[in-house]
């Protein structure tokens, strides 16, 4: 069964960077797809990738990650200023972050306006392991 867990920004707001990364990674390792309100800082995103690499083993193959920030490529100076001000006052609450285990999500396809989660065929893994068992 596939679990999608929503994490509101209030749940990570007071956590340290390590705490935020740990929370997201632990949920992904429990085979849950996490939909986080808001986003990590760019440094935290890099740290999340680094920590993921440190923890890859025979069962955990890594994560799929996508951050959607509607104001990211905003060219209008005033809109950018508003977004920066909101981030300063409220934290990185704008946008969404999706994190899921690579064993479940095959890939995340995105373009500026749309995001597609391509899931792994549930049978493919078991078929592969069956083949090897023979």
């Amino acid at each position: 069964m596939l679990t999608l867990q929503f994490v509101p920004y209030t749940e990570i707001k007071d956590l340290s960077s390590i705490g935020r990364i740990r929370k997201l990674l632990n949920l992904a390792k429990e085979n849950k797809i996490v939909l986080l309100e808001g986003r990590l800082s760019k440094e935290e995103e890099a740290e999340l990738i680094k920590t993921t690499m440190e923890e890859i083993n025979a069962t955990f193959r890594g994560i799929e990650l996508a951050v959607i920030n509607p104001n990211e490529n905003e060219q209008d100076v005033f809109t950018r200023f508003k977004a920066t001000l909101a981030s300063t006052l409220l934290g990185n609450k704008q946008g969404f972050t999706i994190v899921g285990p690579a064993t479940i999500i095959k890939s995340i396809k995105r373009d500026p306006n749309k995001l597609q989660l391509l899931m792994k065929d549930a049978g493919s893994k078991s078929r592969r392991s069956k083949k090897r068992r023979r």
Binding site: I49, T52, I56, R61, G62, I63, L65, A102, R128
Partner: peptide, 9 residues
């Protein structure tokens, strides 16, 4: 190359 996943398979 930077990636978020590595599967030996």
């Amino acid at each position: 190359g930077i990636v978020t996943k590595i599967d030996y398979e």
